[in-house]
Write a protein that binds this DNA or RNA. Sequence first.
DNA 1: GGCTGTTGGATTAACGTTAATCTTATATTT
DNA 2: AAATATAAGATTAACGTTAATCCAACAGCC
Lengths: 339, 339
Amino acid sequence: MRATLKTIAEATGFSINTVSRVLRNDGRISQETSQIIRRKADELGYIPDAIASSMRNPRTRTIGVVSADLSNPFFSEVIRGIEERAQETGYQMLIGNTEEDAEREEHLIRLFLSRKVDGLIIMPSYGKDRRQLELYASLPVPFIFAGRYIEGLESHSVLHSDIEGEQSVFDYLLSRGHSHILYLSGPECISNTHDRDKGMMEAYESRSLIPDQKYIFHLPGHPEDGYQAVNSAINLSMEFTAVACFNDIVAMGVLKSLAENDLSVPHDIEVIGYDNLMFSQFMQPSLSTVDVPKHRLGYVAMELLEKHMDNPSMEYKTENLPARLLFRDSTAGERIRQS
Amino acid sequence: MRATLKTIAEATGFSINTVSRVLRNDGRISQETSQIIRRKADELGYIPDAIASSMRNPRTRTIGVVSADLSNPFFSEVIRGIEERAQETGYQMLIGNTEEDAEREEHLIRLFLSRKVDGLIIMPSYGKDRRQLELYASLPVPFIFAGRYIEGLESHSVLHSDIEGEQSVFDYLLSRGHSHILYLSGPECISNTHDRDKGMMEAYESRSLIPDQKYIFHLPGHPEDGYQAVNSAINLSMEFTAVACFNDIVAMGVLKSLAENDLSVPHDIEVIGYDNLMFSQFMQPSLSTVDVPKHRLGYVAMELLEKHMDNPSMEYKTENLPARLLFRDSTAGERIRQS
DNA sequence: GGCTGTTGGATTAACGTTAATCTTATATTT
DNA sequence: AAATATAAGATTAACGTTAATCCAACAGCC
């Protein structure tokens, strides 16, 4: 049998309450008694029962993290940021994976609530119906969306300047004089796609240009998507001289296809990714991309969540972290060269 | 106020116990009563309190996962495997990161025990002292080591044939006639390094050869390590014609250095990684590597843990998943060509 | 008509902790 | 010396559930 406060109380002759106070440093107990109790607790290998404790305490010091895709390096970094901050402030993390499935998302949130988390950090997918909005509107605990938003609840998000980021990509590409830019955008069900498409449009519009819809593709975001999209574009003899990708993972596939088709990057084709994943600088050629503060995104989301947990009446306000175009060897007109 | 069984009991006029039985489908309650209670529960938005429930139930259906490095794609895949299985069988995951720090490892385990997890999956680091062994020996819940082992507790591990894997790498390289193979091994504090070094030795010994210690390096396992190691080997005019890397991440750095030094892969130098990370097939040239069943490793670890949780007296037995050398374009003597 | 069984539900006692209140002995004040 | 304060600890009730036990009403049976 595992030792409890009762075990220690019986072994030392003090009351359960006294033992509890000693082990929580609640004061009002003499040095002598404290020592006896502490020694006995050590001896019995007492481990406090956080479950029982949170029966009385309203706080469990646990948060729930709902990730869209645990194996995606982007989210891994975000989660590490969350974890780092959580560790610093003594929070534990329950974690779950939705695979971008809104139903699974809802299910996970219910499970976490049942486990009485003090708050939630969520990377939401776009639900098709209004149920999602209702779910979030009725949540009894504070919640933050990391890296994405949901229409109607934008204030709960920590974002990373997707509009500006993609705009800077197209500002660059258009300023280089490219007239046919292949734009491999993301899945329609996430807010980032929305915003980046908007950033792209703004770059065109600021030059009074209109993008050719035939050069815009919405893809799930895997390497094969980039690979196949470029292959088929080449097969269709589309005349593009630059590729802007939804993320670095798609860009990997793009680089592979271009290499196999003997197109030189950046000489024949300029390629830009998004996210700045760790491996991007090791691609051949190294990948120009938009640097997104992934780790910081998680860290800040957790910080913000803590504030709301400490003060539930605090108003929500969208936070927008900066993103920045990073030039490496897959682009030719280097303005700011970075490793 | 959140609805509880009591709220529902008062609203319907039945006893708390009756409500509890209905919502748990415990039987012995009439259809009619069940309906009334269920309807009221829905109406009040009742969410069961898993914390309170696990006060009486010995099981919390929660496991703790102690990861060495959340942002490493290898572990991300393992964790996704764990998560997938956990989801299927209704377990929740508490997760924490050690950064390969044995103290943090111990601390996390204590926290998880305090939260009354039913079991643990751990990617352990080598502790310097005997404390680690004692800690694990005294753990009150079942635990599985995923992908690594601790001396004295090997039976708790699910492994992936590190010895055989590295042996196959060197079998191949030696059969190709390389007489100077640069071996960039891993950190000394993890079991994988140990085993792979052993596999390497066996390959040499089976040919009555002895590896040149000057060509063996133990590195932390980051891209820079591979990059710098090759750079300095070249600067020292070491005459190697092949590089075996501890993981694909190191191999990335190696490929970069070789490219910058105008050494052609695989023509001048053959390079082999380890782990088969997603991006490895997109390197230029695509990376030959040892395919480790990462996702399956996590999945199997969880399956195994479940068995031990269901039957605590079951004996532990090391499981060893197969690993397999995968030939891509960074090697020249292709025997089994795979994508 | 007394016995047994069954159905549908209520009552009670836990689980391990914590917060509020209560008690006793001693110390301090006037 | 009586009144008051303080220190150190005990008692009690509660958190939301669940399991074991209990009870009443009714049916069926010889």
